[in-house]
């Protein structure tokens, strides 16, 4: 639950997009430190745009976005390092010749600044991050030799090595088998509790996170609904957003069939 009253990320009537294309319109949203937030919505609903905005890579064309009390285009390197980011799978070349420890050490580079060499402290922080995800034994293993779930753990460790306040995860379970998906989500929940991290988790899998998050944010090129999962996951709201892609079985189980996602 919110640990302080000052939001660490604040969207104020913020619109994002390119000339002629609006990706996310008129978003007003405050994220408090320590919250665990799930971001859901169909493909093209603006989830990735939200992600880029929070990373300070995309400034609003209208309205305001403040991160750590800075306008997002004023974010400096040391601010950015406070947001640990796990990109979507497939964005990164997983066969890149790099060891697990080398990968996690990269998480230190931003905060360290230019012209500085990683030292003992950075190495300790990286090892600590690996311990948090249970991968310290694999530190000298090639990244490409790990399974999909293990690679995700390493990338989470890289984000943790930044010593972040916010953990931003873009579809962290995509392409993993069911057991591994559960393990990764449990790890994220554990990190949220143990390290008191603010977590923004972008996902297609509503069922996986509904019992774990404090708040759900439902996007469809604008903020469609936000609140505790019980308030957002209502049949009428979801049917409006997902249309015929929504299947409801029994009373509790909600399955969102995302054809673009599963059948490519």
């Amino acid at each position: 639950m919110p640990a302080s009253s000052d939001p660490i990320i604040q969207f104020d009537h913020a619109t994002f997009g390119f000339p002629g294309v609006i990706a996310l319109k008129d978003l007003t949203l405050a994220i408090q430190a320590g919250e665990f937030i799930g971001v859901i919505g169909p493909n093209g609903s603006g989830k990735t745009t939200l992600c880029k905005a929070v990373l300070g890579l995309m400034a609003p064309v209208e309205g305001h976005l403040r991160i750590f009390d800075c306008a997002c285009d004023e974010l400096r390197c040391h601010h950015r390092a406070k947001i640990g980011y796990l990109p979507q799978k497939g964005v990164v070349d997983r066969n890149f010749p790099v060891t697990v420890l080398e990968t996690v050490m990269m998480g230190r580079y931003g905060a360290m600044g230019l012209l500085k060499r990683p030292g003992t402290t950075d190495r300790l922080i990286a090892m600590e991050a690996l311990a948090h995800v249970g991968m310290e034994r694999h530190k000298d293993t090639a990244l490409g030799h790990l399974s999909g779930g293990q690679q995700q753990r390493v990338f989470i460790a890289r984000a943790l090595a930044q010593r972040p306040q916010v953990l931003l995860l873009d579809e962290p379970t995509t392409g993993l088998d069911m057991t591994t998906q559960h393990n990764v989500i449990e790890l994220i929940e554990h990190l949220h509790q143990e390290l008191r991290l603010t977590v923004l988790l972008i996902t297609h899998d509503i069922n996986m996170i509904r019992s774990r998050v404090d708040r759900l944010i439902l996007l469809k090129t604008r903020l469609y609904a936000a609140g505790p999962p019980g308030e957002v996951l209502k049949a009428d709201i979801l049917r409006e957003v997902y249309g015929k892609d929504l299947v409801i079985t029994d009373k509790d189980l909600i399955i969102v069939e995302d054809y673009h996602h599963h059948h490519h």
Partner: peptide, 16 residues
């Protein structure tokens, strides 16, 4: 090294 691995990630984590 970092930008060769993943330029967007590098930028997001505070590397110019």
């Amino acid at each position: 090294y970092f930008i060769s691995f993943d330029q967007e990630m590098a930028e997001a984590s505070g590397v110019p």
